[in-house]
Amino acid sequence: MPAAVVVTDLRKQFGSVVALDGVTWQAEPGRVTAVLGPNGAGKTTMVECCEGLRRPDSGTVRVLGTDPWHAGADHRARVGVMLQDGGLPNSARPLALLHHLAQMYAAPRDVDGLASQLGIDRFAGTAVRRLSGGQRQRVALAAALVGSPDVVFLDEPSAGLDPHARLDVWDLVRSVADGGAAVVLTTHSFEEAERIADEIVIVADGRVVAHGSREEITAGRSLENVYFELTRRSPR
């Protein structure tokens, strides 16, 4: 099966700051790919290039064989996105918002089922601005999944969640990948990466310093040790 996400020699600079210095990696359908790296390593910029939110300076990005910067509505319908800042309108109510977003798709998921799976039904009518950070995370995750996407980008999907909610999120992410979608998630949690990632990409200073299956990357050691070895703070 061809890779769902292919990033080749991607470069992006903001003014004089090099955010991405030629990164290359890919993500396969049916697999969960975790992107790890320190704050400021370029993870979010990299994912935003894949989502069509930023235009690469050079290099190529292909998602489902398409350049996301120029992609049309049918491509966007196949790609689910969860942004780090949520992107949820402040005055909206979670369930109404999800039903609204579902209308953008020809064949959306069952919104009520998705909402109850994530426990959103317990705060379905509370305005987004009154939700806790963890509740907001779950709504944003549901928004990313409502169109039954073939590729999902999740920016720190379990940040700020309590342990039970985190398990629910991990189960859901796993089931989405088992359903055939390529899941790409950024995370700071080794536990998260070790529990649900099939593939791991480690980014530091705008470069990919490791990329492979979880077993290859860790080779019997703990992911934490490997990570600190690869991302030791370099003087900049």
């Binding site: 989502e51 939110l53 049918d74 949520g86 992107g87 949820l88 402040n90 798709y105 928004a143 169109g147």
Partner: peptide
Amino acid sequence: GFDRRYGVLRLLGTSPLGRLG
């Protein structure tokens, strides 16, 4: 202004609705 602040414009831009929509 506030939709931009909260990332709503970015999120909807990645949905099938898109920026023009």
